[in-house]
Structures are given as C-alpha cells and as structure tokens.
Nucleic acid binder design. Structure first.
Length: 502
RNA sequence: GCCCGCUUAGCUCAGCUGGUAGAGCAACUGACUCUUAAUCAGUAGGUCUAGGGUUCGAAUCCCUGAGCGGGUACCA
C-alpha cells in the first residue's frame, strides 16, 4: 500500500539522519517566541548588512517547495505560519540533513528575519534542527481533511489540516477563560464536587454505572453536580460555580454527547430573576469580548445575543405562539394532533406534560434569538422553589436559542420538609421519570441545617460554544466526541459480542 | 430503536442504463538559488467498507452486517 511505502521511505530517512549524527527527535527548542510574535518583529525594509535580527522559531512543516539548492517551507505553530528559506550555500553543514525534510516534520529554525522579494515574512535559515520526524503523510494541504469520521477519531489531523477547526477550539478555550474571569470578578468561588456518586440526581437522566473494587459498591457517574454545590451554600460558600463534565446515558445527536461540559452557578440571597440578569450579561459580554459582536450566524439563522433578552412565561408563549389557551387541555391536544402527533400518545399526558409537549414541539422551534422561558409547572422539578402567587408553577427559567436549550435555572428550594416530600413523590414515580434513584437523605439533612435562598443556573458549555462559533453540531466543538470503537482489535471484540447476542 | 443517505489510491473526488478502475494533490526518481497550490520530465500506488447472492461478467443490481452522517423516537 502507498501508506506503507511512505512509512518505509520515512524510516529510511530516519536511519539516514542517524547516520549523519542528527537526532530526528530533538529536545527543548530555545525559541525567540511564537510565530505570531516573531512575525511582528519583521522589519518592513531589508536591513543593512550586519544589522539584521536573528530569530529562532519552532513548528511543523506544512508546505515544502523544493528548488534544488534552495528550499522554501512553511512552519506552523498554534498562532500561525511563517515562511522559512534554506539555501545550501548558507548552511552547508546541515544541507545533507535538509535533504531528508518532509512535510509533517517539526523543526527548530534559526536565521535572519526579513521579507522576501515578494514581500513575504521569511526566516532565512542559518541552521535548523529536527525536533520530530513524521512517519505519516499529512492530508493534502489544499483539499484539507473533510471525512468527518477521520476528523473526529484523529482530531490531531483535523487540527493540523483545518484552520476553522483549530479556531473553534481556541475560541472554546477563550470562552471558558472569559467565564472564569467574569465570575471570579463577581466573587464566585470555583469548586469541584464528586463525579462518582452513590445517589445521583439534579436532573432527569439515566446515569452511567461503574464499580469501585475496594469498596465493592456500584457508583454512578454524576448527571449533575447540583446537590453538592448547594451543600456548599449550606456550608457558607455563598457564591460557587463548577465547570466540569456530566455524564448522561442517553441518545447521541447534534446537540447531545454522553459526556458534556456544564457550568453550574449558585448565588446565595439571589433568585431566578437575578440569574436571568447574570445569564444575559455573561453570554452577551462573552460574545462582545471574544467575537467583537453580538450578531451570530448559526446554520440558517441570524442570531443576536445582545441583552436584554425577552422574558416570557410558558403560559404566555403557548397563548401567543401556539395560539391555544394553556388552561385548556383539549385545545392543546387538538393543536398537537393537528401538528401530526398520534392521539393515543397524547391521551396519557396530564396537564403539565401537555404544556411541556406544546412548548417542545410547537413553541421552542420558533424561538431563535435567546429567550427566557419562565414558570414551568412545579411538578416537573423537585429542587425548584414554587412561585409565591401561583404555587402550581415554579420560579424557573430556561434559555432557548435556535430552538435549543442553552441554560436552565431556578430559585432553589430551601425548605427541607417540602424537599423531602417532593423527593418521596419523585422516587415513587422513579420508574417512569428516572429522576433519581433514592431520596437523598444527606442532602435533605443539609437543608435542615439551613440553606440560604439562592439562585442556581446551569449553562451547557458545549452548546454555548456551538452558538458562539456558529457550529450546528456538538461534535464540532468537543475535541474527542464519543464514537463507537473502530480499531481492528476493538472491532473484532465488538463483532464477537454481537455474535454472542445472536 | 426506526427511516434515509454516504463509504472508490495517503487526501479530495470522478466512474452513465453491469463489460473488469480514473483525475488532481501527496509520494518516489531526475532538473532547478526568491518560491508560496512553485515549475518541468518521468515512476509507482487499489481486498472499490465486510460477507454472501444474481450474472458469462459486479465498484455498479439484490440480501445481511459495520462505521459515519442526517432525520425521527427517547431525553420534564
């Protein structure tokens, strides 16, 4: 195969370099700076003899133009590309090594920084050193790498070949840094709470189960850090947040990955309305800081994340968007049926679930710009405070953008007696709702010690990054999204299991 | 889970109603000291996703499986 042939050729070059006493896998490079910074040092005019500045950079060769006794190459690091020229005459002693250069190799280059005749910033190399010899050819520079399966499984190739992808992940990192800086400024404390939990809760999702050998107990990968963060409010850490992974054992699609990054933020003495202010400020200022604009193109949609965002109750939205009376179950059923839903599926739904269905199916797809959807039925979330005036509703909101749930927040229930009662009701329905596996007595007894009223907020970081980078698929913003195993050994194993099942 | 689509050289892709596989780039050899998708001349490279079937003959048609993508269901 061509692939093996290339590898053998490169192994030959590796051996040749060793013959020349050159280490193909060099160590520490003493660079002048990153490519971007070095480029900025380049003088406009060619300097006089003896006054030129000598710089050292390191990076991967991504293009090689061979002209016999001269070679031009492009060196890439995270910040950009810089052109390098090597001439036999100027670097006689290492010219033999230069003959073994390939696209893909990492080099350290030292030379004079000045523009070429065509105006390109160039390092005219006096010397270079191999930092790493590549044994596999990179994807063709011009066509890039489009095969999504290779892009996800071998993300390093994607990052080398596709600048868009590289930018997406750099932006992701900057978004997270921005959020941390923002919350630190507001005197929030970043904390870490258990990912291995004996009792899981804080959301409605099925968990991953794992096993601890020494304790000989099953543990659950957390579906949410919520109850642990609120224990910290009880402990007096009155503003906390955690950015980390949650795990939900459910379907995979363009907005769901089994492990995903959430930020949860809890602020004592606040409520859900304070969290609305926080959410729209956080997101819109992140956009302004990182994108320099609040206007975003997302798939088909033009979205503006500038604050303030409209705040609408579920009842208002059902009335305005779906055009039905939210108190009239039959009208909602008729509406859903006319939208193509099977009547037999609708008959089993109670009032609260009917409302949820109308929201999910009819209202949310129409919400493109960020919208606070408020006052969900209290029965749907046992951790959420009831609305004072309408106790059948909760003081809660979700943020919907481009039809997708971006954030979820509420005033935290801090009455331990009501909390226990709601947990018990939930466990009784656990089979159908899958909300939690047991009453979390430890959490309830924490509430009995006393938890201040608080606003709690969760934002899906992956979805926020999707929004701010204009990527309509969550796999484009997760470096290594969950995929089925594909290596020969893994495949053989998977096949064997399939056969056993049959 | 169900439905639809995709899978051909290292990469990006052609390949019609079935006639035995092609291009560009990358690679290799040679020429070339200001190129930048370098150029020029030449060479090599394939289990057409896997298995089975129909056929004189299958990348192409049929069946089964795999991976990936999209939709749908599930996910308050």
């Amino acid at each position: 195969m061509a692939k093996d042939k290339i590898r053998n050729d490169r192994l030959g070059k590796l051996a040749a370099l060793k013959q020349l006493n050159a280490d193909p896998y060099g160590s520490r490079a003493l660079i002048t700076g990153m490519v971007e910074d070095v480029r900025a040092l380049c003088p406009e005019e060619t300097p006089e003899e003896g006054r030129a500045s000598v710089v050292t950079v390191a990076g991967r060769v991504v293009a090689l133009r061979d002209m016999g006794k001269s070679k031009w190459l492009d060196l890439l690091d995270r910040t950009g590309k810089i052109q390098v020229n090597l001439i036999q005459k100027r670097s006689v002693d290492i010219w033999e090594q230069a003959k073994h250069l390939d696209v893909g190799d990492f080099l350290e280059v030292t030379g004079i920084l000045q523009k070429s005749k065509t105006g390109e910033v160039t390092i005219f190399g006096n010397s270079f050193r191999f930092l790493s010899k590549s044994l596999e050819s990179l994807p063709a520079k011009w066509t890039g790498l489009r095969d999504v399966e290779i892009r996800y499984r071998r993300r390093y190739l994607d990052l080398i070949a596709n600048e868009d992808s590289r930018k997406t992940f750099i932006t992701r990192s900057r978004i997270i840094s921005f959020i941390r800086a923002f919350l630190d400024r507001e005197k929030f404390l970043e904390v870490e709470t258990p990912m291995l939990q004996a009792i899981y809760g804080g959301a409605a999702a099925r968990p991953f189960v794992t096993h601890h050998n020494a304790l000989d107990i099953d543990l659950f990968m957390r579906i949410s850090p919520e109850t642990y963060l609120k224990r910290l409010l009880v402990g007096g850490l009155d503003r906390v947040y955690e950015i980390n992974r949650n795990f939900r054992n459910e379907g995979i699609d363009t907005s769901h990955n089994p492990e995903f990054t959430m930020i949860e933020i809890y602020q004592a003495y606040a409520d859900y309305e304070v969290m609305m202010d926080l959410t729209e400020t956080l997101v819109s200022s992140a956009a302004r800081e990182i994108l320099d604009t609040t206007k975003i193109t997302f798939g088909e949609h033009k979205i503006d994340v500038a604050a303030p965002w409209p705040r609408k109750s579920i009842h208002e939205l059902v009335r305005e968007v779906a055009g039905v009376n939210p108190e009239d179950d039959e009208a909602m059923k008729a509406k859903l049926a006319s939208a193509g839903f099977a009547k037999e599926k609708l008959s089993g739904l109670d009032h609260d679930h009917l409302l949820g269905k109308v929201m999910d199916e009819i209202v949310e797809p129409t919400l493109i710009n960020p919208t606070f959807v408020t006052h969900h039925p209290a029965s749907l979330n046992p951790l959420c405070k009831r609305n004072r005036d309408k106790p059948e509703l909760s003081d809660r909101f979700e943020v919907i953008v481009a039809g997708m749930e971006l954030a979820n927040a509420f005033s935290e229930l801090n009455d331990p007696l009501e909390q226990r009662a709601r947990f018990e009701a939930q466990v009784a329905r656990a089979d159908e709702e899958g909300y939690c596996n047991a009453v979390d007595e430890d959490y309830v007894s924490a509430l009995e010690v006393g938890m201040p009223p608080a606003g709690g907020l969760g934002i899906g970081i992956d979805r926020l990054v999707m929004l701010l980078t204009g990527n309509p698929s969550i796999r484009e913003v997760i470096l290594f999204p969950t995929l089925k195993p594909r290596t020969p050994e893994e495949l053989a194993e998977a096949m064997a299991e399939t056969e056993e099942e049959e």
